[in-house]
Write a protein that binds this DNA or RNA. Sequence first.
DNA 1: AAGTGGTCTAGACCACGCA
DNA 2: GCGTGGTCTAGACCACTTG
Lengths: 240, 240
Amino acid sequence: MIIREEPLQHLEIAEYLINQVQKGIIKAGQKIPSENDLCEQFHVNRHVVRQAIARLTNLGWVTPQQGKGCYVNCLPKPILYVLSSQTRFTENMETQGVSHESKLIHWEIDLPDLNEQESLQLDEREYVYRLDILRYINEQPLSITTSVFPCLELPRLEQHFDHFDSLYGILLDHYQLRPIRSHSMFQACLPTLKDTEHLKIPENIPIIRIESVMNHPSGFPIEYSVARVRGDMQKCVIEF
Amino acid sequence: MIIREEPLQHLEIAEYLINQVQKGIIKAGQKIPSENDLCEQFHVNRHVVRQAIARLTNLGWVTPQQGKGCYVNCLPKPILYVLSSQTRFTENMETQGVSHESKLIHWEIDLPDLNEQESLQLDEREYVYRLDILRYINEQPLSITTSVFPCLELPRLEQHFDHFDSLYGILLDHYQLRPIRSHSMFQACLPTLKDTEHLKIPENIPIIRIESVMNHPSGFPIEYSVARVRGDMQKCVIEF
DNA sequence: AAGTGGTCTAGACCACGCA
DNA sequence: GCGTGGTCTAGACCACTTG
């Protein structure tokens, strides 16, 4: 009598592999067995093995590399991002001693959409700057942020884009402006296809979406931003 | 000359379907075409269609139901959860007029792990209560929270579990205790397999993990909790 | 019984990295 | 050229829902 003990699934293979990594049997930087090897080992189809590996990938344990193999991530301990009314990316990273970089990958002048109108208390005819900023830590893409400012408040902002390094540096240097965080809204979601390209992540890695409104020191809203941050690379901390 | 315009992929089918839903061509509560129909429509294998639908599912647009079809979600606008030093789940939901419920699904007395020791400033020999609480809004599971308290602070806590409805209600009624949020840490991640069972979600839906420490009014830490919340059902708001 | 989604097998071709 | 992962086809069996 043959007992089919086959609620064996992609999920069980995934758990087995995660165990191997957690126990240190397969170490960070090493490869897990190839898909074909795993097929033989578990006597299953390659498709099933691939499902298992997909789960490992989404959970952040491994990253497959075409032509090479599937490597266990040297998981960088998630960066702490301390949120307060005064927080800036650059300063935050520097206090943690993390190498960082910001790139302006796109900017435009446009009419505000409904969200932007409401958050910035703008008329539908008041133009805004819309900037897309890609931020790196340790040479890896961490987040992409869309920041929106009323054009009126930051005249000729584009003049300062040539040597872009820190958004808040520009605001401070050229406009004597230090925005203050009014409120933020967090949500876990999946990246858009565009975001996956910029962040160089698979489309199933969860990201944290942070929607914020920043105020001018005198009180009115001056910046509306939506950041999409790799969930596995950052933890946001709020102190009360 | 035949032009292969076939970077057609599961992702493109997914985008097509998302468009149909966004434009209202397929409305909430309705079914999208069956897998076999989509196979014919796009002249692709069922496997490809299933990948596309998997993406829709993860993004929260649809939920497949075996034997019936794949229904467009009546997307409940994400609940706002306002985080402050005084926040409680029950009160938060009631101010928004949302029907809610809490179930204690597991409890134990145990020695604290390293995280818990550190967060609660406990000796490794001081026992803790560990509670798993499942919370519902509008009859749908929203979050699962593991709360840890030092046994010493809440003697005979289990006596009050019979008619469990609100954790903070018990603390207030029987211990005259109103914990105050010290800090919280957010991260986007994927659910564990256990969490998927409790929350009744597929394993690829992103969740937001909120790790918090709450203090006794006189200042020392009294509760360490880890909440896993459906990303598509809740937005956390922080006011500064 | 027919249709639906859930899971698996078997096998193909491609793009990439490496020796 | 070979092995790797990425993608797709073709077809099978199952569990569930509905008529």
